[in-house]
Each structure stands twice: as structure tokens, then as C-alpha cells.
Design a protein around this nucleic acid. Sequence first.
DNA 1: AAATGTATTTTGAATTTCAAACAATAATAA
DNA 2: TTATTATTGTTTGAAATTCAAAATACATTT
Lengths: 139, 139
Amino acid sequence: MTPIEELTDELLLFFNGFASWESSVIRSSDLSVSEAHAIEALGQHGTMNMKSLAAKLGVTTGTTTVTVDRLETKNYARRSSTNEDRRVNLISLTEKGIKAFEEHHRFHLSLTEQMRACLQEEEIQQLLNIIKKVNREIF
Amino acid sequence: MTPIEELTDELLLFFNGFASWESSVIRSSDLSVSEAHAIEALGQHGTMNMKSLAAKLGVTTGTTTVTVDRLETKNYARRSSTNEDRRVNLISLTEKGIKAFEEHHRFHLSLTEQMRACLQEEEIQQLLNIIKKVNREIF
DNA sequence: AAATGTATTTTGAATTTCAAACAATAATAA
DNA sequence: TTATTATTGTTTGAAATTCAAAATACATTT
């Protein structure tokens, strides 16, 4: 097995591990996966309109409408309009939504801490450099 | 921002990038995401029973039944029984399923190649070591 | 043989999604 | 200005995906 093949398999394992960790974290909350992802996007990038949110989530605006409806009902997010363009809905997190985002973010931090615990100081720096390069140039 | 916080954010970006790359690859095929994941698991780990497949996919066996039903209908996988335990269904890929797996795997290889292209030889080795450690110890 | 355990399927409900049609508003062209 | 075109977001209807719980069919243990 070449290093490229090996890396391919390990990346897939890593991705699947991350995905199932994430979904078990979400399942232990009041939120569905799509709701949690929307909160994550809003918490990370701040208030935005439906189209941008849909793009960040990689789904259609129709799907996003439904998700935001549920977030509004559950009081995690709210819509507000602007004067510049009355078609636009700005979606922002409520207090409750911000708290949920922060809690979710703490889970991510704790996963990174776990990684630090099994890596050397130097490796953490290497990983950060490598992932940054890949994120900038590929994704 | 501490390195741990920065790494947390970059890992999330990486994960989301990988997820949306994966889902666009799948969408360009005849398969749904859940079907593709099942094929991936079967191709990677070989023939297995429903319970193991469900565990690999991180879903219930009920969900897996539905997924395998569709894979059977579309002729990507087949069920067969064993003499040892007649409750058990062994799920394996058909020729068509193996081809689909190999094609999907080639996509993964090409993504890894892209990563190699933007990293140095040394960094590839570092990444491999680091990801292996994390996979073994955390996921 | 009866009770218990295990692997899988079925069922019913909720969630998630999309494409397409629609409504409201904005921007552009005539 | 007025008509046309483009954009933003919602609604609708259908399909896919999922889960928990009940049901089924075997196996194992007592």
C-alpha cells in the first residue's frame, strides 16, 4: 500500500469518526442535525440572509426556510428585515441560540483537546499548518 | 486566538469541506448518500451482517434494512444466509457494487493526490502519522 | 420444553430534502 | 414612467432518510 493509499483510508476513517462523534453530540441535544448545522453556521459567521445560509449549509433555500422555521419556533433564531431590500430576511441567533452555539463549540474544543493529549506539541503545530494549507487550497 | 482554538476552527472547516466534496461526488452518481456510504463500508471491510453494517454506518438496523433493500433492488448488493445461524443475513457487493466502490475510491484517491500536490513530501508523512494516531486513540 | 437472548424486518411517525411553482420586491431597459 | 427581467424567499408535493418500538424468526440457556 502506497502512502497515498494509506492516507486516503486514514482520512476516510478520520472523517467517519468525526461525523459520528458530531452526530452523537447533536443527538444528545434538543436539536436535529440540520438545525445544529444552521446554528453552527450562524454562530460562526454571524447574521446572514437565507440565500447565504443555504449556501453555507449546501442545501436549497426551500430547505433552509423549513430549518429556520423550526429554529424560530424553538426560539433559537429569529428573522428580521432590512430597509435596503425588503425581500431579504436576516437570520440571527437569539440568546438561546448563542448559548447552544457556545455549548456546541465547547464540545469541539474538547475534541481538539483530546487530540492534543495524544499528540506532541510539535505535531499540533504541524497539523495546524497542514490543515490550513489544505483548507485554503482545496476546500 | 490560541492554537487549540485555531485548530478547532480549521478542523471544522476541513470536515465541512470534505463533507460537501463527498456529497457532490455522490450526487453525480446513481446513488444516494446513505447507499454510497453502505457501499463504501462494504467495499472497505468486505462482506458483513446487518448488525455490523449498521454499526459501521452509525445507524439502526432498521435503517440499514431499508438501505440494503434499495441496494438490492438496484443490484449493487445482495443478501445471503449462512448455515451457522439462519437469522443472519450476510451482505456483499455484486459486480456492479464493486465497480461503484472502486470508482468512489478513485475519487478519494484523487482528492488525496490534490492534497499531496499542495503539501511537501515531508508534510504528507507528518499528516499520515498524526491522523493515524488520532484514529487509533480517539475514534 | 420454557424462557431468554439475538438478528433482522416491519411499521408508523417525524425529519430532511429537492424541484418546481409562486409571491414579493428590486433592477434594468424601453 | 412602464414593462421586462432578475433576485430573494416561501410554499407545495413527493421522495428519501431516519428512528423507536413492535413483530418475527431463530439460537441459546436454564
